[in-house]
Amino acid sequence: MRVIPALIVLSHAFASPALAYPVGIEEVRDMAFAKGIVKLKEIELNDGIWEVEGKDATGHEIEMEVDARSGAIIKLRRD
């Protein structure tokens, strides 16, 4: 009977790291669109920071970093 609870605990331990943070990929995508990104190139979670790359309507590149815990925009750079 103790095997099943152990399997549940292990399954949560190996779950996607994105699930451990309150700010998910959908929220980050919406934030990117609100900041002028119209074409997403990449969204990646790296050490608790969402890294977003994309382009605005004129084709300029935009990079954005969002804290996955607070949802705060740490970096927003337009080239």
Score class of each variant (00 low, 15 high):
Lys35Cys: 02
Glu63Trp: 05
Asp56Lys: 09
Ile25Cys: 05
Asp67Gly: 07
Asn46Glu: 15
Ala34His: 12
Leu40Thr: 09
Gly48Arg: 13
Ile4Leu: 12
Ile62Glu: 04
Glu44Gly: 03
Ala20Thr: 06
Leu45Ser: 15
Pro17Cys: 13
Ile62Cys: 02
Leu7His: 04
Ala13Val: 13
Ile4Thr: 10
Ser16His: 06
Val9Thr: 11
Val38Ile: 14
Ala72Ser: 06
Glu53Arg: 14
Phe33Glu: 10
Asp47Cys: 06
Pro22Met: 06
Ala15Phe: 07
Ile73Trp: 02
Phe14Cys: 07
Val52Met: 14
His12Ser: 14
Glu63His: 11
Phe14Val: 13
Ile8Asn: 01
Lys75Thr: 08
Ala18Tyr: 11
Ala57Pro: 01
Ala15His: 12
Asp79Gln: 10
Ile4Asn: 01
Lys39Gly: 02
Ala57Leu: 13
Ile25Asp: 07
Ala6Met: 15
Ala72Met: 08
Asn46Ser: 15
Gly48Tyr: 13
Lys55Gly: 00
Val23Trp: 06
Thr58His: 05
Met1Ala: 13
Ser16Phe: 07
Ala32Met: 07
Ala15Glu: 10
Ile37His: 04
Ala68Phe: 09
Tyr21Cys: 03
Ile43Lys: 00
Trp50Met: 10
Val23Thr: 09
Leu7Tyr: 11
Val9Leu: 15
Ile49Asn: 07
Ala68Thr: 05
Ala72Leu: 02
Ala13Trp: 11
Arg77Lys: 08
Lys75Val: 10
Glu65Phe: 05
Glu27Phe: 00
Met31Asp: 03
Ser11Asn: 07
Tyr21Arg: 04
Ala15Met: 11
Glu27Gln: 15
Leu19Thr: 08
Val23Phe: 09
Leu40Cys: 08
Val3Ile: 04
Ile4Glu: 09
Ser11Lys: 03
Ala57Lys: 13
Ile8Glu: 00
Ile73Ser: 04
Val9Arg: 08
Ala15Lys: 05
Ala34Pro: 04
Leu76Trp: 09
Trp50Ile: 07
Ile62Arg: 02
